[in-house]
Design a protein around this nucleic acid. Structure first.
Lengths: 236, 236
DNA sequence: CTCATCAACTGACGCAGATCAGTTTTTCTT
DNA sequence: AAGAAAAACTGATCTGCGTCAGTTGATGAG
């Protein structure tokens, strides 16, 4: 199923995305490079699962990963979307608890694994890396708190529009400059927004009727970014 | 209004709560102790305000502080409650952005200020402190993501019960062992839960009718913790 | 190709909870 | 102490959106 291999160089990630790990000092990066193990995951496969204990952190090399909580009633809540260069699984590692979210491949993906002991020891001796780590954590926290506020105060329509813009920011668009560069089911979109699948579907076709976007299967073409932004009603 | 003074020793905080700062090496702690400035705030006064640039971090010495976003429509969303020993304002400092939340005293409070440059320079040379900082950030992030899931999936009644338990965990109870040790308005409780003030009021008196708690003005006595926990319907 | 399965969609309905409006109680002011 | 102002409470709507149920369309297996 998952094929492990060593040959994906960190250098690739550095050149392509300037991943966080490149804040590390050179010698430390070399250590990481030497110990990491790359694994490929097919779409839908699990990188790690909620409830398990972390043995290290992961760095996305290619593909797309969703991080989601499973709610008490079994409904999924997607809390993050990761792209190449992003690291995942650090929260559980740093707070020394089990994973509170599962990581699942949205596309065929290749993900590097860095063992816990190595990462933690480097973190202790590499001030530049830890500072960057804190920056990431602080920024994620900021986003999470904003999401809390919107979830508590904004109607579904605005949150859906905001989510579409967020997906665009995260994964970008295809060559046509408008089609979201990721295939999400309507249910996944709903779980990102925090609403029922049917509501997401209804509002998407409402947006379509209003000419804000085009839908063909899972492809979503954002036609009128300005109007979508207005529909999101963002102040900040 | 706010009286600055130097005489609150960090040692006090250490003995009383084991604040994060005591993960710092001794010499660094002494440096902090030498440069910090304590200020007292009367109930309702602002420690720092959303939108402003941070000049340092704060460590709560005595009292209680709420951290809240102001939503687009002006509605407040409380994202954190801080107690003595807690540090606040680190998120903006670490991500090098403006404050995304305001900090307001819920009680007369005394708060120490540690200048940005000092804190950041110590953070860079003190691995133990930065690791603890990351631990805090990771743990806050975990809580925030859980809140997102609950906000998206749980009814108000369950979230209110959960919030009451959260307040108890944070600020504890008075000598009677049951009365929440903080005075929050119904509106503040609602803004913590993420609901309308009227709904919070209604559900509180519903809880009262069911014998889960007692209400006298702003005092809330939790009578039946087991039932409240059940009402919160927590899986995890 | 045909059937089976699952996702996408549509409509109807019901209700949790927001909003509005009005009353009572508490708190603050002078 | 009396009056004003704010908070707490209560009741009466109203509606956003979740739920349910059924149809259509897409995808994949044999």
């Amino acid at each position: 199923m998952c094929t492990p291999y060593h040959n994906a160089s960190c250098k690739n990630c550095q050149d392509r995305f300037g991943s966080i790990l490149f804040k590390a000092e050179k010698c430390n990066l070399e250590e990481i490079e030497a110990s990491k193990v790359c694994t490929t995951y097919k779409k839908g496969q699990i990188v790690f699962q909620e409830g398990a204990y972390p043995f290290g952190i992961y760095c996305v090399n290619t593909g797309k990963i969703k991080l989601s909580h499973c709610g008490d009633d079994g409904r999924e809540q997607i809390v993050r979307l990761a792209k190449p260069g992003d690291i995942i699984g650090y929260k559980a590692l740093l707070s020394a608890e089990r994973y509170t979210a599962s990581a699942i491949a949205l596309d065929d993906s290749s993900v590097c694994f860095i063992p816990k002991d190595l990462f933690m020891s480097i973190l202790q001796k590499d001030a530049s890396l830890s500072l960057e780590m804190m920056r990431i954590l602080a920024s994620e926290l900021r986003k999470a708190e904003l999401k809390i506020t919107h979830l508590a105060q904004k109607p579904v329509r605005e949150r859906l529009a905001e989510t579409l813009l967020f997906i665009k920011e995260t994964y970008g668009v295809e060559q046509d400059g408008a089609t979201l560069n990721v295939r999400l089911s309507r249910e996944e979109i709903a779980n990102l927004v925090g609403t029922a699948t049917e509501s997401a579907i209804r509002l998407l076709s409402e947006f379509k009727k209003e000419g804000l976007l085009e839908l063909q299967g899972k492809k979503i073409r954002l036609l009128d970014l300005e109007e979508i932004t207005r529909a999101a009603n963002l102040q900040d």
